[in-house]
């Protein structure tokens, strides 16, 4: 990683424009998609284990996956989203991540 500072005239404060900031800061959704094979009980169990969600919330999200075809199960920073996608795919849930639209 480079440690060089950008060249700025003395006394000039660099500002981050609104055009660049949102792309960096916008959070990521972790999305679980429906598939015909995974058991509903299994999907709910995974949500409880991975996110520590209470049973009721895990079952609500599972039903959303089943009835709507997908559910946003977590939203947050990119690194953590990648971690959750990895864990959910480890459990064989069909999982993707997408950046929240501005």
């Amino acid at each position: 990683m480079s440690t060089a500072s950008p060249t700025l005239a003395p006394g000039v404060i660099e500002t981050v424009t609104d055009k660049t900031k949102p792309a960096l800061d916008r959070p990521w959704n972790v999305v679980v998609h429906n598939d015909p094979i995974n058991l509903m009980t299994f999907v709910a169990m995974v949500f409880q284990r991975v996110f520590g969600y209470p049973r009721q919330k895990a079952e609500r999200l599972m039903m959303e996956v089943h009835t709507r075809g997908r559910s946003i199960v977590w939203t947050g920073g990119r690194e953590q989203a990648e971690h959750y996608v990895r864990i959910l795919q480890q459990y064989h849930l069909w999982t993707t991540m997408e950046q929240v639209e501005s």
Partner: peptide, 28 residues
Amino acid sequence: ERLLPEPSNNTAINRDWRELIAPELQAL
């Protein structure tokens, strides 16, 4: 494709996924 779907529409994320995460999951 079903067991290891590409996780996003971001090229860099998908490349890292194929190179680092997918082999790890397959070994597990």
